[in-house]
Design a protein around this nucleic acid. Structure first.
Lengths: 210, 210
DNA sequence: ATTAAAACCACATAATTATGTGATGCCTTT
DNA sequence: AAAGGCATCACATAATTATGTGGTTTTAAT
């Protein structure tokens, strides 16, 4: 038996969801609330398996509710409900430990499947939401800016700078004179348009050169 | 009519998929191959809507095949097939522009739905795969290590260091004496266990203090 | 063959950074 | 009331870094 709590401000939808779920074998709605004002107490009291959480609610919105719940319970499965596949909310929901993210227009049969999947450790997502997630994901990992035409040797030096090496240590590490290290670094600064070690290090991180 | 290419080294599965899809209204398998050796030519020749790509193939594996295809065609939808929800492959597939990622054990009816969803811009994923993705995602963004008990003022100073400010500039920016800046920085070094500006900057980035 | 870039080295000087030792006032916790 | 952390400032010195000028040699491109 999957035991649920529902948070949804729209009375029709709240009633509809409750009826649908209670009318299905293996599911039971413990209670349904119209806001998240006392979400911590409610979750503690009912100990549900799965929570359906509307994103757009007056007062404490769904993301806030999600955060509150995650502070006191990291296990309960939380399925976010929304009308839009809104980029910002998807990101926030995922970052804060939502287990799934589905559109409200999901057909009832599908929704029950999603609930079940969430309970068994899956991460059900409407495929349009999944698209958003993948886009964010690949953009996060593929934007590795320019490499500023650093030569191999210059990249090595920059890498060592990033690792906190002094000129002297770099010279020893690379078996070259300290003046050569200076030369390389001067060239690196020109190419990166900076004029200090820490700026170079910062730029290296920001542009994922290292 | 959704037109597909299939890449799958296992003859039984290849045949099975072809039969299944060809036997379904609205789907047509243009051709099925046992490896990706000539994937570019084949994609160019057939111009499919969707490609089913097995991950684990001898020779050019599915990830390599994916990369090859994406070099010549960024629009065709590519659905990765795999037996395991293997972390590393999921990551690579997503980073390289796969449109979906489903387990081979997906029931036939579901698979057809997934193909359709992929074609219409969705990102179908077996929910266990989606779980992986969400985990990677939130680990990427939530691991903000310790904050090393930096005071507010120290955080400000560190922030300015990261932005490439010199002591003099920090003093001006914060309306304090340069010696005070030194004090703060000395304390910061102690707390971060470093002893140079660039190490502090690097640590700030690595631990997402800034 | 000439050019250009990269990699290497040297000397010199100015600026910045690192480190130590003190000191004062404020606020919070004990 | 005392203790500790925080924020502020001062003076001094050593070390490191930034910058300029000027080289040689090797390698790759035109």
């Amino acid at each position: 038996m999957t035991r649920l709590l529902i948070y949804e401000d729209n009375p029709q939808l709240r009633e509809g969801l409750t009826m649908l779920i209670n009318g299905s074998d293996g599911f039971e709605v413990l209670s349904a609330f119209k806001n998240c004002n006392n979400v911590e107490d409610e979750v503690r009291a009912f100990k549900p398996d799965v929570i359906l959480m509307d994103i757009d609610m007056p007062g404490t919105n769904g993301i806030e509710g999600l955060k509150k719940i995650r502070e006191i319970d990291t296990d309960v499965k939380i399925l976010m409900l929304t009308v839009f596949d809104d980029n910002k909310n998807v990101f926030d929901a995922i970052s804060n430990g939502a287990n799934g993210y589905v559109l409200k227009k999901t057909p009832p049969a599908r929704l029950l499947e999603y609930i079940q999947e969430a309970q068994t450790g899956g991460a059900p997502m409407t495929s349009s939401i999944a698209t958003q997630v993948l886009k964010m994901f690949s953009s996060l990992n593929n934007e590795k800016g320019q490499d500023y035409d650093l030569s191999e040797r210059e990249k090595q030096v920059l890498q060592l700078l990033v690792n906190g090496y002094s000129y002297k240590m770099i010279a020893a590490e690379m078996f070259i004179a300290i003046d050569t290290v200076r030369s390389h670094i001067k060239k690196i600064y020109e190419k990166l348009h900076v004029n200090s070690k820490s700026e170079a290090v910062a730029k290296a991180f920001r542009n994922k050169i290292v």
